[in-house]
């Protein structure tokens, strides 16, 4: 599934990285605890989270994650977006709750990587 397809099925908005829309992704991790993302998400290239602070972008950077999807209508601020731009990480935002966002992506064939 491409980042563009994820954006469409999640009714999400691109906050940054539309030029990466054609990147193909397979494994997704979802959590609000960045410690858990670091522990278990190392095979995944997409992070779904409702946590909204600069450490989300840093965590994604360490794991080579290419796209962060913020759920529950969370909006990263300018500093976070600037960090994502510097790291080349695409940012999507959706109003869906985390469970629903994960369910939709699972239904479309994405898996958790464990």
């Amino acid at each position: 599934m491409t980042i563009r397809e994820m954006q469409e099925v999640l009714d999400a908005r691109f906050l940054y990285g539309e030029e990466m829309a054609d990147l193909d992704v397979e494994f997704v991790f979802s959590a609000d605890m960045m410690s858990d993302v670091l522990a278990y998400g190392s095979r995944c290239s997409v992070l779904i989270t409702g946590l909204c602070n600069p450490q989300v972008v840093r965590t994604a950077e360490m794991l080579d994650i290419v796209c962060i999807i913020f759920v529950r209508g969370k909006m990263p601020d300018e500093n976070m977006l600037a960090l994502a731009v510097g790291k080349g990480i695409a940012i999507l935002a959706t109003e869906h709750y985390m469970f629903t966002a994960c369910g939709i992506l699972y239904e479309h064939g994405l898996r958790g990587g464990a």
Binding site: M33, S35, D36
Partner: peptide
């Protein structure tokens, strides 16, 4: 802030 889960 997303840390302190005892995983560090």
């Amino acid at each position: 802030l997303g840390f302190g889960a005892g995983m560090g």
